[in-house]
Design a protein around this nucleic acid. Structure first.
Lengths: 221, 221
DNA sequence: TAGATTGTTAATCGATTAACAATC
DNA sequence: TAGATTGTTAATCGATTAACAATC
């Protein structure tokens, strides 16, 4: 029997969590002790009811007339996201995007440590990128198992993406962060999150075009 | 009077367009001439009705029993996204993520050319990253105007994001691609698209945790 | 006590999915 | 003609927003 999911938070809610976390850490750094949904609303331009709904999913309880304890809220969100206990990840494909991710310090705050990079290019193997070693793909499977790495990041060209994913699955990787435009085929017990820069660019392009026709129609009136 | 928006496509539809485009180009390269929604469905794991709805927004008309003309469909999607006529962009912040974007070749296919990078670090100014020159911020405003650049990409640390955005707005930038976790405050005739890697990581984290509790509950049954 | 803010329950909105007629 | 596939119209689903009672 399928277990009834314990009221899973909507994906949009999950996506907004890091923004709350970022703001709260700023407030905490300034020494602020409590925060109301109204204040969060002003800073992030969400709706206040949405803020309350979102935060409720973390399990925190606020005080009427006061708001939420900033420090406590940070902890609830981190627990909710599982960002309090750090996970190790391997990155495959040390091209320009892959290299950037290897050096991207912000992941440390987000419970993710990219331990090493892998590549097939002999010229890259053995080098270091932002202090992270680049290893040959032949060592991937063995190291995943020995180090119990659960997360794999794919930054290879689209043509190689499925092959790398198969390799990751075979090695025992449980979650794949996919930076290629390819829809990966994986067993259902493996989680894939696609991060597609071109989706964002598409939205920007369309909004820009809409803005332009809007302005034309306004000026022509 | 506000012009009635000509049936704007939903954002999720827009986000899926690049995936269609990517697949269609593959098919075209293999010499395939027509494609049905069913086939696209199989490749991308969307629903076939969703594919037809999405494609309809581009204005293409298919033939019952045949499907869509691959080449023609590519053109319709590119027109829809405005990716046929190339736009120039300036990128601010040549850190590791910024540098990666400067070198990311895929944007060329997406109607975006990053012309140059800007930074405040004297050590970076004057250097080249993946063949793109890094210029000082003092030249930003003037060059935006002279070259009629409409898109700005922000890859600076969060603390500097709003300042850079103000500068961009002042220079006449119309669309901002924001890679920081900050909610930018801009006039309403400027479009902002936030690209937040931490949102994606949040979704991956939560899905992974859910998968794990799922499996535990299954084995304990 | 008065009033601001939370959290719950209901209404609305928009996207996805289903059903089916039109058509090549 | 028969049947596969498109495109339209209706139904469902899920997220956002609104209304309001509870509470400090």
């Amino acid at each position: 029997m399928k277990n009834q999911k314990t009221r899973v938070a909507p994906i949009p809610t999950v996506r907004r969590m890091p923004a709350y976390l970022h703001l709260l850490k700023q407030l905490a750094a300034k020494g602020q002790e409590t925060v109301s949904a109204t204040q969060i609303t002003e800073e992030l331009a969400f709706e206040s009811i949405q803020v309350r709904k979102d935060l409720a999913f973390t399990g925190i309880v606020g005080k009427p007339r006061v708001g939420y304890q900033v420090k406590s809220l940070i902890k609830f969100i981190e627990d909710f996201l599982g960002w309090n206990n750090n996970s190790d990840a391997f990155l495959v494909g040390a091209g320009c995007l892959g290299s950037a991710l290897l050096g991207y310090g912000a992941f440390q705050d987000h419970g993710l440590t990219i331990v090493a990079g892998f590549d097939t290019d002999p010229a890259k193997i053995g080098t270091e990128v932002y202090g992270k070693e680049i290893l040959g793909m032949d060592r991937f499977r063995d190291l995943v198992r020995r180090m119990h790495v659960r997360i794999g990041i794919i930054c290879v060209p689209a043509g190689a993406a499925q092959r790398v994913a198969d390799l990751m699955v075979d090695a025992g990787i449980e979650g794949i962060w996919n930076f290629t435009p390819v829809k990966l085929k994986v067993p259902e017990n493996v989680v894939v999150q696609r991060e597609d820069l071109s989706s964002g660019l598409a939205v920007l392009s369309v909004k820009l075009a809409a803005m332009q026709t809007d302005e034309e129609s306004v000026t022509s009136e």
